[in-house]
Write a protein that binds this DNA or RNA. Structure first.
Length: 284
DNA sequence: CTGAGCACCTGAGGGC
DNA sequence: TGCCCTCAGGTGCTCA
């Protein structure tokens, strides 16, 4: 079937939180603790205009690497922080020869270089004056990280109470919880046996208690899968952080549910493709 | 405050 | 072979 082939092609290109996490782990050995010699900016704007100060950076040590939501944060010795977001098609590649859609090249004093390649230009690179997240326009209003204890059933149940929209787009709202993108929202709801269109404030406490661990589990499993393929990538073409994951519902419209055999259905919620098993995920 | 919808961008794939 | 259309993704932003 055509849809099957299509979905397989998509698996390799979407940076969700697990891909961002493994990307960070991949660039850390080259960048953290090393001196950033210069930043080669070759595009006027990605998601936002490129900050001119980025090109002015010279010979500054990178003292730390962090992730917040899907943002990669590189803390500099001068107190500033570089922010990188991969958007939907962005990749950070190590020591690769120039290629189409290379937009920013981080040149290290060691001679290594890390390139942001992003065909669709939905990513962003920014430079902040401080490492304090509360000072960052794009960070200060974000919800909790899904893999921390702050994201628990009590918290989520409280957050969902005020929301009448469908649970799936609500899970993808960064004010509720960060890092749950389209793919893993679909997968987590299937695992928790919750219909994606169910109003968020109609979930029972019990359902939320099932859902929260499923979100954590699916993200952790994906990170582990990325961790293993990361090694392969580094030994081959230098790409980082993208991997195959055995999706249960995402991209599987019309194919049999892996649990009960019922054809997976596809609907649109908040302009996003939504996949679910009508039998395993009843409306109530 | 919530919620709905748009815009941004390119490449892949399908239909003709 | 090639053109045109649709779709995919994250998320900041606008407007009701």
């Amino acid at each position: 079937m055509g849809c099957q082939r299509k979905a397989e092609g998509l698996q390799a290109v979407m940076p969700e939180l697990p891909e961002v996490e493994t990307t960070l782990r991949g660039i850390e050995p080259l960048m953290v603790g090393s001196v950033l010699e210069s930043v080669d900016v070759r595009v006027e704007k990605l998601r936002f205009p490129m900050p001119p100060e980025l090109s002015d950076l010279h010979d500054v040590k990178i003292i730390g690497g962090r992730r917040r939501s899907k943002y990669i944060l590189l803390d500099l010795e001068n107190g500033q922080t570089i922010m990188v977001h991969l958007g939907m098609s962005g990749r950070l590649v190590l020591n690769r020869p120039p290629a189409k859609h290379d937009h920013v090249i981080f040149r290290m004093a060691s001679g290594d270089h890390v390139t942001l390649n992003d065909p669709r230009k939905f990513g962003l690179v920014d430079l902040y004056k401080t490492a304090d997240e509360a000072e960052h326009r794009l960070l200060k209003n974000l919800g909790p990280e899904p893999l921390t204890d702050a994201f628990n059933a009590a918290y989520l149940y409280g957050a969902l109470c005020k929301r009448s929209t469908a649970i799936k787009p609500t899970l993808m709202d960064a004010k509720v919880v960060v890092g749950v993108g389209n793919i893993y929202a679909n997968e987590a709801l299937f695992r928790a046996k919750i219909h994606p269109a169910k109003p968020a404030n109609k979930l029972t406490k019990k359902q939320v208690e099932v859902l929260v661990p499923e979100i954590k589990t699916v993200l952790k499993e994906a990170i582990e899968a990325g961790g293993s393929s990361l090694r392969d990538y580094q030994h081959s073409d230098g790409k980082l952080g993208y991997f195959q994951f055995n999706f249960l519902v995402y991209g599987r419209e019309g194919q049999p549910c892996r649990v009960c055999g019922t054809p997976i259905q596809k609907i649109t919620l908040a302009q996003r493709s939504t996949f679910f098993c009508p039998k395993c995920q009843p409306k109530r």
